[in-house]
Amino acid sequence: MRIFLPACSLALLAGCATTPAPRSLDTAGLTAVRNQSVAVTSRPRPGFAVLKAGNMMFGALGGLAGVDEGNKIATANGLPNPADAIAQELVIALRDTQGAQSAAPVAVETNDVERIAAQAKGKARFVLDVETRMWHVTYFPTDWTHYQVPYAAVARLIDADTARVLAEASCKVEPGTNAGAPTYDELLAGGAARLKATIAASVATCAAQFKRDMFAMREAAASAVAAAASAPAPAAETVAWTGTMACGARNDSGPNAAAYEAKFSVDVQGPSVRAHRKTADVEETLAGEVRGDQLELRGTGNRVADPARSWGLGVSGAFAPGATSYVGKGNMVVGGRPIRACELRMTRA
């Protein structure tokens, strides 16, 4: 499998130099998208780097070693390209608000708008291109023993017929403090559970920001970004819950197509919720935060014996203050397309 470096390649700490200014769909754009087909782009997974203070002393060679180590971690733990999950969230938003219809993903390896439009033409009326520009593990400049996972992406909605960008925006997620940050070993413990949860949180934050900046869905996005920017209370008690995920049969008759139920262990710490399961065959992790009286959980799963076989998971539902049970409904997603309807039921132990 070919692994591609993000556009920033080894200049990861500096981020990307060129990011688009936010541009929302205008009235004409909203009218044009209504009830039309929308495809997402599918890009090769970008290179994932681990930047340690010791490695960075060796300059470019140290950076290359960090990319090699990071790619091994991504492959071993089945980390998908976060852009795929973000794109799926945006397509769902267009479906729910404009009646857009999801089309098959379009494989691209370019940033050129005209080439992307040409590859999508005849397959979908519009193409939603989300690109990961930065994702890596790195130490804090003033704390070399604790680690963060910065993430950045750009998104564009392209008219496949005219090769015109109708809406675009950028997103960058970085912690504002090292309070509560994990050590390197803690980040990768339990099948990289905390790393996966951190990436899932970044996906949720960027999806919410793109909904606001590209589609003027301001209320939901503003609350999501505000919640992501707020550090959880350090003294919050961790409460154990039990969970059961019930997923219907695959709608594409793919492998392991039958409906199933699976048990999850669930930790609730203040507004933060994490659900996880690992068997001999499968590992899945979802994470999210309670916002108002709603809880949206996002995450990924993969085959233990074949980490490259991965999928996305997302559920949402009401979660009132003091609740002792929760029902979240959503989908399992592969290649940007929902393949199963899923329901997660949680009960406080």
Rank of each mutant, 00 (worst) to 15 (best):
A65N: 08
H276C: 06
A32M: 00
A249V: 05
D293A: 13
A104F: 12
A28K: 05
G54L: 10
T183N: 05
F126P: 07
A275K: 07
G312T: 05
P20V: 02
A192F: 07
L79C: 12
S202P: 01
R156M: 02
A280I: 09
T110I: 11
A201Y: 02
E343S: 13
L64D: 03
A65D: 09
G336C: 09
G301Y: 09
L295R: 14
A85Q: 03
E168L: 00
A189S: 14
D213T: 01
P182N: 06
T142G: 05
G254L: 07
Q148H: 04
V173T: 03
E174Q: 13
A226L: 09
S310M: 15
P321Q: 12
A208G: 06
A226H: 02
L188H: 11
P80T: 06
G54D: 12
V315Q: 06
I92E: 13
P46Y: 09
L157M: 02
L295S: 13
Q148R: 15
K211R: 13
V38A: 08
M346H: 03
R298W: 07
T205R: 09
A229T: 01
L51F: 11
L295P: 08
R164S: 15
P255T: 08
V239K: 13
F319E: 04
A320E: 07
A257F: 07
